[in-house]
Simulated scan of single mutants.
Amino acid sequence: MTLAFNQRIRQALDDRKQSDLFRSVQTLEGGNQPVFQNNGQRFHNFSSNDYLGLASSDELKSCYQRAVSELGVGSGASPLVTGYSNQHHSLELALTEWLGYEGALFFSSGFAANQAAVFALLKKGDLLIQDRLNHASLMEAGALCDADMKRYRHCDNDHLATLLQTDKPTMAVTESVFSMDGDIADLDTFISACQQAGALSMIDDAHGLGVIGEQGNGAIGCTAQRVDILVVTFGKAFGLNGAAILCSKEMKEYLTQFARHYVYSTAFSAAHAVTITKAIEMIQTQHWRREKLSELGAVYDEVLQSAPGYISTQTPIKPWLVGGEEQVLRLCNALKQEQIWTTAIRPPTVPKGSARLRITLSATHDIEAVEQLATSLKRHSEGC
């Protein structure tokens, strides 16, 4: 029996390597900073989700250090045992007041939060409708839950409206900012379509909160409508980790009873909750961080707008479309020779034939580094 598994594992690994889809963990020093070291070499980091530069902020680090000194490093239990503290409650109040919801539940990751909502709410005979390019956590949840699942064409709310014409209890889900493409969904139309059909609406705001919307309030700042379930994560613009589901009081009570990822997982620490609360304050008040992102994006666009591979976005996510797996690996390695660190994104993360560099900007980048990146990309694209 062991031999069968060994053969299966070996074959799967060989297949990945032969198709240029093999992935490896890189051991880096300072991967949460705009410049880091790898094997003694210095690289400009254009792969991080730390859009606002909070992960290496002295202000946020000092807050975390003080909180750990006072409160310790672990919560000790799940939220329903002894893992929910006054600090968690203060974070919930800050988050719900900022984003306009009645309640919030905290999770270890956005992956867990997305799956918790789908698994807890959908039953056999229900229908889940998703944007075709939604995150893997949502697609996996849809495949594993008891409900039927349909996918609508990317950001095509007319197609969504057609699929919503059903008598089944229905939930529709979209991302606000799509993590591999950097584009923004039409959230007004999405929510209106759900409301007209009597469907439950859910938005994954992982890459939106802190970056888009009025004063960085993400999806809710981009629509006059109110989505039923808002999932936010603290591992992108917040510079930390963890996630939350924001919803009505009654929905919160239901998820507290039936969301297994919440009930049976250890809560993040009280010190972590204090630091997330501090990050909310920084996002709300330090407008220069979003202004810097806009400035850097304009520099990037000006150099590259006519180059092959360039895709225009209004977010810090700048996909550079290459197409083939071998070609994107070659470009990624060529940039590394120039001390520019990017990540080659290949299937199954993106559809076949759409391999790309997922380039991201951070408020801690300087203009010279972005100009160097853009110039190198343009030179390599012209040489293809």
Rank of each mutant, 00 (worst) to 15 (best):
A77G: 15
A77I: 03
S78L: 00
S78K: 11
S78T: 15
S78Q: 10
S78E: 08
P79A: 07
P79M: 05
L80D: 14
L80C: 12
V81D: 14
T82Y: 09
G83E: 03
Y84N: 07
S85Q: 10
N86V: 10
N86P: 05
H88V: 00
H88L: 03
H88Y: 01
H89M: 07
H89R: 15
H89F: 08
H89N: 12
S90Y: 02
S90H: 09
L91K: 05
L91F: 03
E92M: 11
E92R: 11
L93E: 14
L93G: 05
L93D: 08
A94C: 11
A94Q: 10
L95W: 08
L95A: 08
L95S: 05
T96Y: 08
E97G: 07
W98V: 06
L99R: 03
G100S: 10
Y101N: 09
Y101V: 02
L105Q: 09
L105G: 02
F107K: 04
F107C: 08
F107H: 03
S108A: 14
S109P: 14
S109C: 14
S109M: 08
F111P: 04
A112W: 00
N114A: 13
Q115S: 15
Q115H: 13
A116T: 10
A117D: 05
V118K: 04
V118A: 07
F119Q: 12
F119R: 11
A120N: 09
A120Y: 09
A120R: 09
L122P: 03
K124F: 00
I129T: 00
Q130F: 01
Q130R: 12
Q130D: 07
D131S: 10
D131Q: 09
D131G: 09
R132S: 14
R132D: 06
L133V: 06
L133D: 08
L133H: 08
N134Y: 00
H135E: 11
H135C: 14
S137K: 12
S137I: 08
S137P: 11
S137G: 15
L138G: 09
L138M: 15
L138N: 14
M139F: 06
E140R: 13
E140S: 13
A141N: 11
A141H: 07
G142S: 07
G142I: 02
A143Q: 14
L144M: 12
D146N: 08
A147E: 07
A147D: 01
D148I: 00
M149T: 13
R151P: 04
Y152A: 00
Y152S: 00
R153I: 06
R153Q: 14
R153C: 02
R153N: 14
H154C: 04
C155D: 07
D156T: 04
N157V: 06
N157T: 11
N157M: 11
D158I: 08
H159N: 15
L160Y: 01
L160C: 06
A161T: 06
T162V: 11
T162D: 11
Q165Y: 02
Q165F: 02
T166N: 00
T166S: 07
D167K: 11
D167T: 09
D167H: 11
P169N: 10
P169D: 01
P169V: 00
M171P: 05
M171F: 04
M171I: 01
A172P: 08
A172S: 13
A172R: 01
V173A: 12
V173W: 01
V173E: 03
T174N: 10
S176C: 15
V177M: 03
F178I: 02
S179Q: 13
M180I: 02
M180T: 14
